[in-house]
């Protein structure tokens, strides 16, 4: 068995909805991954800094306030600047379908909306982290 996958679950912006983020974090833990949860109100800079410090392979960003187009692309951009684009970037929460293309263009690998099974997220991570 290899080393467990390390994941950062992050809340960006001012949004306080953390139920989904915490449930996903717990499910990933129960699936054997090592999970760090940032808590609320992180800036993109803080997220990337924590990701690098913690040496994670995956970042999952949760946002439900509608600020995703302002807060998620900067994370992808900063990862590129730090030569860390190999970190798998995921997002979840409330993100309208019409914004998916822009986020994927920016470097988000998958977007998990309301009603997603945590098993699908676990499978996606296992299949996409080398």
């Amino acid at each position: 068995m290899g080393k467990p996958i390390r994941v950062l679950v992050a809340k960006v912006g001012l949004d306080g909805h953390d139920r989904g983020a915490k449930v996903v974090a717990q499910a990933l833990k129960d699936a054997g991954m090592e999970v760090i949860y940032t808590g609320l109100r992180q800036t993109p800079e803080q997220v990337v800094e924590t990701a690098l410090q913690e040496d994670v392979q995956v970042i999952g960003i949760s946002t439900l306030s509608g600020a995703h187009l302002y807060l998620i692309p900067p994370v992808a951009r900063l990862l590129k600047e730090k030569n860390a684009s190999d970190i798998l970037l995921l997002s979840g929460g409330i993100i309208p379908e019409e914004d998916h293309a822009a986020l994927k263009e920016a470097g988000v690998a998958a977007i998990f909306g309301p009603g997603t099974s945590t098993e699908d997220i676990i499978a996606f991570i296992n299949n996409n982290v080398s």
């Binding site: 912006g13 001012l14 949004d15 800036t43 306030s65 509608g66 187009l69 302002y70 807060l71």
Partner: peptide, 22 residues
Amino acid sequence: DLPTQIGYDSDHPFAMGEVGKV
């Protein structure tokens, strides 16, 4: 909106993207 609820004016950097949203 969240900046109002958390005491940031709309021109504060932390308000970016959140103004008028929720």
